[in-house]
Design a protein around this nucleic acid. Structure first.
Length: 551
DNA sequence: GACAGACGCGCC
DNA sequence: AAAGGGCGCGTCTGTC
């Protein structure tokens, strides 16, 4: 049975049971303590609430875990995106309620920085009109959503998507609470050894200052390596013209300043993005606790708010260590996107390749590229990203010949984008509409086809259907893994998730069970998302004490 | 001083 | 070998 619950602002909650039509199936109750209200109803299969981020953080703090939820604001985002002409509408409960009643729709509140506690000055949730209480609005909007789901292209898939997104919200809240085990002492030692000690009162670490001197000497003038204009001018005086100071452009140049400059840029990056001040700001009690935002990107991939948790440089990963007696189970999907493409396109040849656990790129290479794995990988990625030039094009043509249905799937998505149509992931997440393009028909005529913005749109929609469908699938993996680990009575905790990779922190003796649970969750997610399919989703799994040792 | 956008680079 | 998809974030730079 489903129940709806809304906080009342005094620590209490109003709640009510729901029927299968999404409408109230019993009286509205008031309970003075939210946590008790939820804890005392273990028979509830799914809690329907406004927003997981807020209510579930409080429940977790009170020691209450829930099995399933339905996040009305997350659902509203996905439904608005799916519905013709609704894209870009506000997604708050208040906005959804206003639309139901034909009232002016309040805009969404801007996101709060993750490392700041909520304060009096925060706007909090977008307020409902005076006199409208949250549970009432919640019940109306939820019932409306149940009806809207039934009108979508594939109602079963959309129901699954909403459940999966909500499960992701639960995982995100639990993962933020657990935190990534982080050894600040090891991180500091690493900074000391790479950057040199911090010069007291100085502006930059010793090693960076030294490299800046070397660069300046090589260019015959005092330069600041972190100022692109400075560098471009200095190279210009040396007779070398640069259009930027990007790494790949610098690498082409034969000049003694290049090597120390690239070394400087690498250290600069480490210092500014994951240096000493990052530790002070983000590591508390041996844990790094980023705030995860499921569905934070248009494709459904997650983002994090603060701390750059999804861009942790490889060198820093040595600071991520399991607690004594515990292990990190690090698992990442092998060739996730090609496998997802095989599943959604149902291309017979590609399904055959994806139906084996072996390295797909090596297999593709053996079949079509004379055994050159790198070539096969670049061709596949080029096809997924819409590469338009370079050597890989001939190899993409080979893929097109051998796997016509798979390539037609992404080509059709690209064509839809160029023509200004929307595309959807397998479960129905819909891409946002293009920004208004002022290119006129006449201009298009003159330039002999669609212009740069339309082609860019085609690359976006081409990639969207694959990256997004992969994100659909990973949500189901996370949900299944969370479920299995809990019901097996494990102490294991999900502590990290990054697109195609999870880290579970667990007692050493649970590691093997966790690894199996991950493999099972992947297979189940494949069946649930894509139906009967020969496509397999193998993981590479490492049980380590240190994340840095996982690859 | 605040803000927006560009740049550059880390991750997938 | 060439420069295609999705992000976050720190810094600089130009503008108000």
């Amino acid at each position: 049975m489903r129940w709806a619950v809304a906080e009342t602002g005094d620590g209490g909650a109003r709640l009510c049971p729901l029927g299968s039509d999404g409408r109230p199936a019993g009286p509205v109750l008031y309970e003075p303590a939210l946590a008790d209200a939820v804890r005392s109803r273990p028979e509830v299969e799914r809690w329907v609430w406004r927003s997981t981020g807020e209510i579930y953080r409080r429940l977790l703090a009170a020691g209450v875990r829930v099995e399933r939820c339905y996040d009305v604001e997350a659902a509203e985002s996905l439904l608005i995106g799916h519905e013709e002409g609704q894209a870009g509408q506000a997604r708050s409960l208040a906005a959804a309620w206003a639309r139901l009643h034909g009232l002016p729709v309040p805009p969404d509140a801007p996101a709060r920085a993750a490392d700041t506690e909520p304060t009096l000055f925060d706007s909090g949730p977008v307020p409902l009109p005076p006199g409208t209480d949250e549970l009432t609005a919640l019940l109306e909007v939820y019932a409306g959503q149940v009806a809207r789901v039934a009108r979508t292209e594939h109602p079963e898939r959309m129901r699954l998507l909403l459940a999966a997104e909500s499960a992701g919200m639960l995982v995100a809240a639990e993962m933020s609470r657990a935190g990534i085990p982080w050894r600040a002492d090891i991180h500091r030692e690493l900074l000391d050894s790479m950057l040199g000690e911090r010069v007291s009162g100085g502006t930059e670490p010793r090693r960076m200052a030294e490299l800046a001197d070397v660069v300046s000497r090589a260019l015959g003038a005092r330069v600041r390596p972190d100022l692109p204009q400075d560098i471009i001018r200095a190279f210009g005086r040396a007779g070398i013209s640069l259009s930027s100071t990007r790494k790949w452009e610098l690498q082409e140049i034969d000049h003694p300043a290049v090597a120390p400059l690239l070394a400087y840029k690498s250290l600069y990056r480490l210092h500014t993005a994951h240096g000493w001040s990052w530790i002070d700001q983000w590591v508390r009690d041996g844990r790094f606790r980023p705030e995860y935002l499921p569905g934070g990107t248009v494709t459904g991939r997650w983002t994090t708010n603060g701390g750059g948790a999804l861009q942790i440089p490889k060198v820093i990963r040595t600071a991520i260590r399991a607690d004594p007696g515990w292990r990190l189970v690090v698992a990442d999907v092998d060739q996730m996107e090609p496998r997802v493409l095989a599943a959604i396109s149902r291309d017979p040849g590609l399904m055959k390749v994806a139906g084996r656990d072996e390295d797909m790129y090596a297999d593709l290479a053996a079949r079509a590229f004379g055994g050159d794995r790198a070539q096969a990988k670049l061709a596949m990625l080029g096809a997924l990203y819409g590469q338009t030039s370079g050597d890989a094009l001939t190899h993409i043509a080979e893929l097109r010949r051998r796997y016509p249905a798979a390539m037609a799937y992404v080509d059709n998505a690209a064509h839809a984008g160029v023509e200004g149509r929307l595309v959807r992931t397998w479960l129905g997440r819909t891409c946002p509409p293009a920004a208004i393009d002022h290119e006129t028909d006449a201009e298009r005529e003159r330039s002999g086809g669609y212009g740069g913005t339309a082609r860019a749109r085609g690359r976006f929609t081409r990639n969207f259907v694959v990256q997004g469908s992969a994100a659909d699938w990973t949500l189901l993996v996370l949900a299944g893994l969370r479920h299995t680990m809990h019901h097996a009575g494990l102490r294991a905790e999900l502590v990290f998730f990054q697109h195609d990779e999870v880290i579970v922190h667990c007692p050493e003796e649970e590691a093997a069970t966790v690894a199996t649970a991950i493999t099972d969750a992947a297979a189940n997610a494949g069946r649930i998302a894509f139906g009967r399919t020969p496509v397999r989703f193998p993981f590479t799994t490492a049980v380590v004490e240190c994340y840095g040792d996982a690859k």
